[in-house]
């Protein structure tokens, strides 16, 4: 990590300039994370009077807990569904907007609205549309002969939170795909046209490969979003239920720690999530470095 060639002298000033950032980071980021790691190796007795070191026992308990494993599975299905649907719809809309010569500005302006809506608000909007008794979409489904009640049907509850979470992410993906598409040289596509390649063939052989870096970057971002930014979606609507069907990992870590007051288990869950973020960030940065080298 290089500095400028021409620099200023002195040590006190730069340290003072860094102090606010470092103080907040150490007090509210690093120290709590260290605490989480320490607590994950400890267990409190029933009265909270003393704590003892129990090694990996909290992790072993998690591994043996069917509810935790179920929550892991739910989170995987949820993340895959959110990422895939948001990417496919975002790409489709971006390709179409890229094709039109008139109105592209208006279309993009309208398509970025959902990005500004908080995940929890998005969830409340969708929960209203799909409200079991009065939701307009529920009525539509009833006409189609589908009984919709996400309060009792776990799969439907999962579909609800996938819709709410993916909806907002479509806007994000759309913007990045559109930027990617607009950076593809027109001459390439014109050459393909002259060679009589149809739109689908152009897309498959030229556009999609050139979008690969954008797509890969977006996959990571979408998975991170689905894993860590969707607490509000669950908390504002399904509360993890019915049963355990929408208990995502971030919701469970909050519920077990904050409501259940099971510190050891919640901390162990935090550490598992920590490992997942570190892995995802590492992937993202490796990829970014490679992109910069090209």
């Amino acid at each position: 990590m290089q500095a400028k060639r021409v620099t200023f002298g002195g040590t006190a000033l730069p340290l003072a300039l860094l102090a606010p950032q470092l103080a907040v980071t150490v007090v509210f980021f690093v120290w709590p994370a260290v605490q989480a790691v320490i607590t994950s190796f400890q267990r409190e007795d029933a009265f909270g009077l003393k704590t003892e070191f129990v090694g990996l026992e909290n992790f072993r308990d998690l591994w043996a807990d069917p509810l935790y494993l179920e929550s892991f599975g739910t989170t995987m299905i949820f993340s895959a569904a959110v990422a895939v649907s948001a990417l496919v719809v975002g790409l489709l809309l971006a390709v179409l907007v890229d094709r039109v010569s008139r109105g592209a500005e208006i279309y993009s302006a309208l398509l970025i609205w959902p990005y500004a809506v908080a995940p929890a608000l998005a969830a409340i909007l969708w929960a209203f549309l799909l409200n079991p008794s009065i939701g307009p979409l529920t009525r539509l489904l009833r006409v189609l002969g589908i009984a919709w009640n996400y309060n009792v049907d776990g799969t439907q509850a999962l579909i609800l939170i996938v819709f709410a979470s993916a909806w907002k992410q479509v806007s994000y993906n759309f913007l990045f795909f559109l930027a990617g598409l607009q950076s593809i040289p027109r001459s390439l596509l014109e050459a393909a046209s002259i060679d009589a390649a149809g739109p689908w063939r152009q897309f498959r052989t030229i556009v999609f490969p050139l979008l690969a870096p954008t797509t890969f970057f977006l996959i990571v971002v979408n998975v991170v979003y689905a894993f860590f930014d969707t607490f509000g979606v669950v908390h504002a609507t399904t509360g993890g239920g019915p049963g355990q069907s929408t208990t995502l990992l971030v919701y469970k870590v909050w519920k077990d720690g904050f409501i259940g007051l099971n510190l050891g288990s919640s901390s162990a869950q935090s550490v598992v999530l920590l490992v997942i973020v570190i892995a995802l960030t590492a992937v993202q940065f490796r990829f970014l470095e490679r992109r910069i080298n090209y």
């Binding site: 980071t25 690093v30 860590f228 607490f231 971030v250 870590v253 904050f258 919640s266």
Partner: peptide, 18 residues
């Protein structure tokens, strides 16, 4: 490092410090 530590993974201790 802060990039790798979203609030979600350290809820309880961050709350305790605050």
């Amino acid at each position: 490092i802060t990039l790798m530590l979203p609030v979600e993974v350290r809820i309880l201790p961050t709350f305790a410090v605050t």
